[in-house]
Write a protein that binds this DNA or RNA. Structure first.
Lengths: 112, 112
DNA sequence: GATTAGTTCTATTATATAGAATATATTTAT
DNA sequence: ATAAATATATTCTATATAATAGAACTAATC
């Protein structure tokens, strides 16, 4: 059994997949800021990103410098087989938890 | 905007919905032990449960003692409108993140 | 050397988890 | 009837892990 992913870990792994060959820290941050509709500190991305890398859910490699008005070169991330397995297991749990609840949970008025 | 739920919070809220009028600490724990396939400490349930109650995602009331071989009486939980809203928003984010990835994320062999 | 893009580092806060302690009920033995 | 034993459940406390913010730093182009 692979480990269950936290919400943040799941979001970052999905961001990496989504961004394909452009998955580096700042781009992941922008992507998640968009889907969440709020700003995120760089630490909120880089800390879990590094943890996922160390734990083998992601691999990374240094990018070449690109002439886009200077700046440090990027570190690109890719999901590993282990990362994919964890995502799939997390999704399976999600489906189990939501099955039969899915569409419209109704509110039951208070009993006490 | 309601706050985004953590994975644990989501699991507990869904457990409360699932268990209906039998949603108390130990039953929630058993339910989640089943879906997760591993044992959980009581703290792993009661600590976030109390937090969700304090934050208004759940409400609770003391149950009457039932003659089922003694023991302390139960505290039952119900989801609040706020809890439902948070669940729905969390689910909406999930759908956004997974849209177009859903079924079969493929592994791209390493580049470096 | 000024500016830009990006990452790394460090500190703080929030969450998750384990398990001991406690409370309160029924059952059993005397 | 009452005390001890047992069962069920919650509360409390301590620790480990994760999330977040933002300062510091690095490395490129202008």
């Amino acid at each position: 059994m692979t480990e269950l992913l936290s919400r943040t870990e799941e979001m970052i792994l999905l961001g990496v997949i989504r961004l394909g060959n452009n998955a580096y820290g700042i781009a992941i941050r922008e992507y998640l800021e968009n889907v969440l509709g709020k700003s995120l500190s760089v630490g909120a991305i880089y800390v879990p990103l590094e943890r996922l890398d160390k734990a083998g859910y992601l691999s990374s490699y240094a990018g070449e410098p690109t002439p886009e008005r200077g700046g440090r070169s990027k570190r690109f991330y890719q999901i590993t087989p282990r990362g994919l397995a964890a995502l799939q297991e997390t999704e399976k749990l999600h489906d189990t938890l939501w099955s039969g609840i899915g569409d419209l949970p109704r509110y039951q008025a208070g009993k006490a």
